[in-house]
């Protein structure tokens, strides 16, 4: 499903003394099947943007087109439900949304709300629990007896059970340790490819953005500051640093090497391997500048 933002503005508490403009003049297109990372500071408008993707928020002006649907300020909120099945959102600390007595019931909760028959929902729960890396006997347990990491996986399965075409992830690895973080990011990447999802990842990690995303949207002070491939975005590392955002460690290294060696490294240096290769090249070419 293609997603297009046209001149989107969002003002919280509009027409009141507390009005605060969180988004303005947002024009951006996300093509179907893309993996897009949204980066920016806390308060840059990332999370407001994200909530427009499934109609949790409606633009105060402009339009958001998601597949066939168009969301404007006029749309009645109860018309948005079908959209929520197509766009699944994994919020930050999703384990906080668990509430059922068993893991199975919690995973089935979303599908049942959308009118999926019960045995169908249960079948899905069995399939998904394995997909998120847990064993089937977890299904009968209370979600609150699980470890934090396991609870998060259950909550994610609950979102995947909607079989969304677009998966929106808001800092899905917050609070996990390095291994947990890596496993989770790899799991989402696998899902992205296997299920041909459109994935929107909101993250603070430039490493993850560089590693997984086809495109990066940089949000700054309520609007889109930059949009392009990781290569394009990190090419102007200095500009990113100027608005207080960092670049991946590999890009930092590349920058410092270029300065110290007085050379231009053609590789974008987005992963460790790429960077190691670029440095090897530098040594093989060999001549001193």
């Amino acid at each position: 499903m293609d997603i297009v933002f046209e001149k989107v503005e969002h003002v919280y508490n509009a027409r009141s003394p507390l009005a605060r403009r969180a988004l303005y003049d947002v024009n951006v297109a996300i093509r179907s099947g893309a993996y897009v990372a949204v980066v920016g500071h806390t308060g840059s408008g990332k999370s407001t943007l994200l909530q427009h993707l499934n109609g949790l928020l409606q633009p105060t002006s402009g339009a958001v087109k998601i597949g066939e649907e168009t969301i404007t300020s006029h749309k009645r909120p109860n018309q948005l439900k079908p959209l929520r099945k197509k766009v699944g959102v994994v919020f930050q600390f999703p384990e906080h949304q668990l509430f059922e007595e068993t893991v199975e019931k919690d995973i089935c909760f979303g599908p049942l709300n959308f009118g999926v028959p019960e045995d169908e929902a249960k079948r899905k729960a069995r399939e998904l629990i394995k997909l998120v890396g847990l064993s089937e006997d977890v299904l009968v347990r209370s979600p609150f007896d699980l470890s934090g990491g396991q609870m998060r996986r259950v909550a994610i399965a609950g979102v995947l059970a909607l079989e969304p075409e677009v998966l929106v992830l808001d800092e899905p690895t917050a609070g996990l340790d390095p291994r947990g973080r890596k496993e989770m990011m790899e799991m989402f990447y696998r899902l992205h490819r296997e299920k041909q999802l459109t994935t929107v990842l909101v993250t603070h990690s430039m490493e993850d953005a560089a590693r997984y995303a086809d495109e990066i949207i940089v949000m700054h002070e309520g609007t889109v500051w930059g949009h392009g491939t990781p290569e394009e975005i990190f090419r102007d590392a200095d500009k990113l640093t100027a608005i207080g955002l960092s670049v991946p460690e590999t890009v930092k290294l590349k920058q410092q090497l270029e300065k110290r060696f007085g050379v231009v490294i053609p590789s974008p240096c987005l992963t460790l391997e790429q960077t190691a290769e670029a440095i090897e090249q530098l040594f093989v070419k060999g001549e001193r500048p």
Partner: peptide, 16 residues
């Protein structure tokens, strides 16, 4: 508000 949004994303209708 956060929980309401998370459940709304799972198809809960708090208004009717």
């Amino acid at each position: 508000e956060k929980i309401m949004k998370a459940q709304a994303a799972r198809g809960v209708d708090f208004s009717g």
